[in-house]
Design a protein around this nucleic acid. Structure first.
Lengths: 261, 261
DNA sequence: CGCGCCGGTGATCGGTCGATAAACACGCCG
DNA sequence: CGGCGTGTTTATCGACCGATCACCGGCGCG
């Protein structure tokens, strides 16, 4: 065994120049596309390919799946890295739905119901083969993309969830008593519980429940029931130390939170 | 830019055959080890290297880090795949502590305390750079190692946790009413919450709380408070449908679970 | 004191990688 | 109907990968 063990089968040796003629034995009838059509086709194929094979996937293999030759990739992208950057764009850009934040802010509905609805919508967007695997590959590659994205999630989502929880259980608002580390950890836990369903399925290859929405509801309900005891304790502690450290400030104790942030 | 962008710096061109002489300018003083010492050194280095670079890491780079030449690897391991297999062994084999199961079975302590103690011990074993990254890399590579390991976790740990939860909240034992899918999901959620702390740190490169034990305690307490409402409902449903589908069997209703499995 | 054993290295092989260059084929316009 | 622009392919380059082989040199045994 001398050669590399990879790529056992070689190219199917298609006869060239068969633009759409569809000879009886020709496997992929090659089509001649316009520049931007081809560019989009490559981008789409690159997403599907790299999220399966990882960013170490070979450009020849990608080209084969697209039904084109490898040098054609380099007419549309200067190099492999540019192709990978495009994959990041394709997967993350415009996958963030601003309605999520509006949903969490909609005070006409009960907090529990809003958070369940949010995580259902979020799960639908994020619990996909492409999203989960690209996210993991980029993390393992040392990209800061993950930390930047998750900072966004923390600032836009976690803070809102915690604010609503505080309201729900009559604790002081984050403006009065800043959010503690442990509170963030509690929301991290809910987030992780849901995200990990995708990891189990698309990275470990495990079976997962058929009806995710029911699971999300169960997890969120358990979250709501489990959080208050821990949270009220930690918020009370934070309020106390805060009051101690700033003796002149008004007591931010255990009273009904008046308004939202 | 024509060449591959990888491996920008080349080998430092060490003068050969300097076994331990420690010439003033020689950077790594090469030592001549016995066969099994060298073999263990390579295995150790391979773990550190592959969990950082992934299994696509180059053997020459590994050798450089070990202070040896690349062909020497092939004196101790027939090929790269054998080296990777050894990494799996090194990381997973004998990292499973049988005391974990004993700990969960120890009925002299309260269930909540036992589960906190277990997850502290488990986190200490599993929440390491090597373990988490190797686990992810192997999953993304399509190994069935992950699913085999997690099946073990489910059978040995999750079932015990659920059994203790049922006992704690006066629900029928798993022998009477089999464990439902949603109950497994609840325990998956706790597990994921803790495991994800490691992912955040060693894959995403995020900061995590300094005192993990406190976080684990908070998560487990919230878990215990949150679970019973969801769980008693789902167990009652399961018991009902079970009684309906097997009319001759004794009613496994809402009574004190008499003993453990 | 010589010699064989064995840990270790240098050189190199076949193969594959990313990337480039030149030629080709089809559609369009004049 | 011939030239030209553009989408695509063939052929190939230099680099580098995993793996092999011949050889080297210090240590220990007789």
């Amino acid at each position: 065994m001398r050669a590399r063990p990879r790529a056992p089968e070689d190219a199917p040796k298609l006869s060239p120049y068969q633009y759409g003629v569809a000879t009886s034995k020709a496997k992929p009838p090659r089509t001649r596309l316009s520049a931007d059509e081809r560019e989009r086709a490559i981008a789409r194929g690159a997403v599907a390919f790299f999220c399966e094979a990882g960013f170490g996937g070979r450009t020849r293999e990608l080209a084969k799946r697209l039904g084109i030759t490898q040098p054609l990739l380099y007419r549309y992208f200067p190099n492999k890295e540019a192709l990978i950057d495009r994959v990041y764009q394709e997967v993350y850009l415009n996958r963030w739905d601003p309605q999520w934040e509006e949903l969490l802010d909609d005070h006409t509905r009960p907090a529990r119901e809003r958070i369940i609805a949010f995580y259902r919508a979020y799960a639908k967007a994020v619990l996909s083969y492409e999203w989960i695997r690209i996210f993991m590959f980029s993390g393992l590659r040392g990209m800061d993309l993950n930390s930047r994205y998750l900072t966004l999630v923390r600032d836009r989502i976690y803070t809102r969830v915690i604010r609503e929880l505080r309201r729900e259980y009559g604790l002081p608002s984050p403006a009065e008593v800043p959010i503690s580390e442990l509170e963030f950890e509690l929301v991290w836990a809910l987030h992780a519980s849901i995200f990990y369903i995708g990891i189990r399925k698309w990275i470990y290859g495990l079976e997962i429940p058929e009806h995710i929405d029911g699971v999300i509801e169960g997890l969120t309900v358990a979250f709501f029931d489990g959080v208050p005891a821990v949270m009220s304790r930690v918020v009370a502690n934070a309020a106390k130390t805060r009051a101690r450290s700033r003796p002149g400030s008004p007591r931010a104790g255990r009273r009904r939170a008046p308004g939202s942030a």
